[in-house]
Simulated scan of single mutants.
Amino acid sequence: MKLNAAAWMVALVVGSGSLVSGAVVTTSDQLEFVVGAGANLSVLVFDFNDGSSQSSFAWGYRWDGSASGEDMLAAVAGADANLTLDSSSFVGNVSYFDGATLHSAASDFGAGAVSWGYYLAGGFAGDDSMNNGNVDTPASILGGGVTYPTTFTISPTGASANSFGDSGRLLADGSWDVWSFGPYNPGTYAHEEPPGSEAPAAASVPEPASTGLFAFFLLCWSLRRKR
C-alpha cells in the first residue's frame, strides 16, 4: 500500500508527540526524568489539583556541593520542553503536557486567592518573619528521604522568590520540594489541600521516535519526487 504525502505527515505528527507513561513515584528511585549530575538527589513535584486522574508529577535533580530550590526549578524547566513556568518573583504560571493532557494553572493573589503553594520535606529553609525581608539562617526542615513523604512543611517564607532562592531554601540529599496549586489563606499562605494525599507520577521522557520518523518522512518524500 502506498501512502501519499498527507498520510506520511499524519504519521509523523502522531509519532512525534508520544511520551512514555510514567509510573507512580513512591520512592525516588522510580523517577524517570532526572537532570543534573552529582551524588545528591532531590525531587521536584508539581501538583496541579485539576481533577484529572493523575495531576501530580515528579522530576529528579542531581547535584554536588550546595543547591537551592531555585537551582532545581531552573534545571528541570530548562531540560523538559513539556514543562513551562514563570518563576521570576513567584511561581505564578505552570503548564505541563503529560502526553495526553495539558495541565495548566496560574496564581491569582487578588480576589481569586489561588496560588502555587510551596511545601518542603528535608533540607533547610529560612524564616523572614512575615516577609520583613530579613531572611534568617536556614534551619533544618523535617522529613525527606527515599520514600515519598506523607507530610510536608509549608515554606516559612511564603510564596515570594525568597522561599525558593538560596536565601530561603537549601536542598539536602533526599529532600523533596512540592508546588501544590489551589485556594489559600491570604494570612498564612496555607492551602486548603496541602500535598501528601496523592503520590506523583514520574514525569515522562519523550520517546526518541520523533527524530527517526522525521528522517524517514524526508527520505520517502525525496524518493517520491524523483519518480
Rank of each mutant, 00 (worst) to 15 (best):
G187P: 03
S180V: 09
A201W: 02
N132R: 06
H103A: 11
W8L: 15
P200T: 08
S21I: 15
P208D: 12
D136Q: 08
Y189D: 13
R62D: 13
P194N: 07
D173W: 03
A58M: 04
R225E: 13
S21R: 06
I141C: 05
S18D: 10
F46N: 01
D173L: 05
Y119D: 03
W59C: 07
S155Y: 05
S28T: 08
S107N: 01
P156L: 09
E207P: 03
V35R: 01
G78N: 00
F33N: 07
A159W: 08
P208R: 06
E32S: 14
A139V: 07
W8C: 10
V114H: 01
Y148W: 08
D86N: 04
A203K: 00
A7K: 10
S66L: 10
F97T: 09
N82T: 11
T188Q: 02
V45M: 04
A139Q: 07
H191W: 09
T137N: 09
G110A: 12
R62E: 15
V76P: 00
A77D: 03
R227S: 14
F109A: 11
Q54F: 14
G92Y: 06
A209V: 15
G145W: 03
F33K: 00
D127V: 02
N93H: 09
V35E: 05
N49E: 14
G126D: 07
V45C: 06
G174I: 04
A100D: 14
A199D: 11
D50R: 00
Y184C: 07
L12C: 14
A161S: 12
S222F: 13
G133H: 01
K2T: 14
W179M: 13
A105D: 06
L142D: 15
A111L: 10
G51N: 01
I141D: 04
G168I: 03
S56K: 00
L120F: 07
P183Y: 02
L213T: 09
A75S: 06
D98V: 09
M1F: 14
A161C: 06
